[in-house]
């Protein structure tokens, strides 16, 4: 189960609110930075991507998947950083469908491991009940409870 793995690898964080989406993205990257997956250069690249392409990283309502390119400068290891924010982060002031409270930052320098991550994440986020439960978690303990509830791989 991907969620359990993220807790074990210490790649999770829980926050109250942010002044803007850039702050949110940097906070989402903090655990990845601390655990040696990325450096600041990658977060700069992720922010530049959103500025260039718009808020498409909000892939389904409430869920953002910030990322840049594979093997981008500042990527040291392949992984996913999870962040839950209490107050919705706005990516497009005119489109509430581009608000996000769940963040899954992708970092990759290994396409095989990355594809495996993407498959698991896609599976996870295709489950509406699971996503709704994720919106209520406030700490690792509650995240693990969600992981247990839905079990599986």
């Amino acid at each position: 189960m991907l969620l359990r793995e993220l807790v074990e690898k210490k790649l999770t964080c829980y926050e109250e609110s942010f002044a803007d989406w850039k702050e949110a993205i940097r906070a989402n990257g903090n655990p990845l930075k601390r655990e040696g997956y990325i450096e600041d250069a990658y977060l700069d690249a992720v922010i530049a991507c959103v500025e260039k392409y718009g808020p498409y990283i909000v892939i389904i309502p409430n869920v953002a998947m910030p990322h840049s390119t594979e093997g981008a400068p500042g990527v040291l290891k392949t992984g996913i950083g999870f962040m839950k924010v209490e107050e919705a982060v706005h990516f497009d002031p005119n489109d509430p469908e581009k608000d996000a409270r769940l963040f899954f930052m992708l970092a990759s320098n290994d396409s095989e491991a990355h594809l495996n991550n993407i498959m698991q994440l896609s599976e996870l986020l295709s489950n509406d009940d699971l996503v709704n439960d994720l919106l209520t978690v406030k700490n690792d303990e509650e995240l693990l409870a969600v992981a247990d509830k839905y079990g599986g791989e």
């Binding site: 260039k52 392409y53 892939i59 990322h67 840049s68 390119t69 990355h114 594809l115 498959m119 994440l121």
Partner: peptide
């Protein structure tokens, strides 16, 4: 297709 060809485009492809 997606911005970088790394994240969402692979998800779309699977779906």
């Amino acid at each position: 297709a997606c911005g970088n060809g790394m994240g969402s485009s692979q998800m779309i492809k699977m779906k």
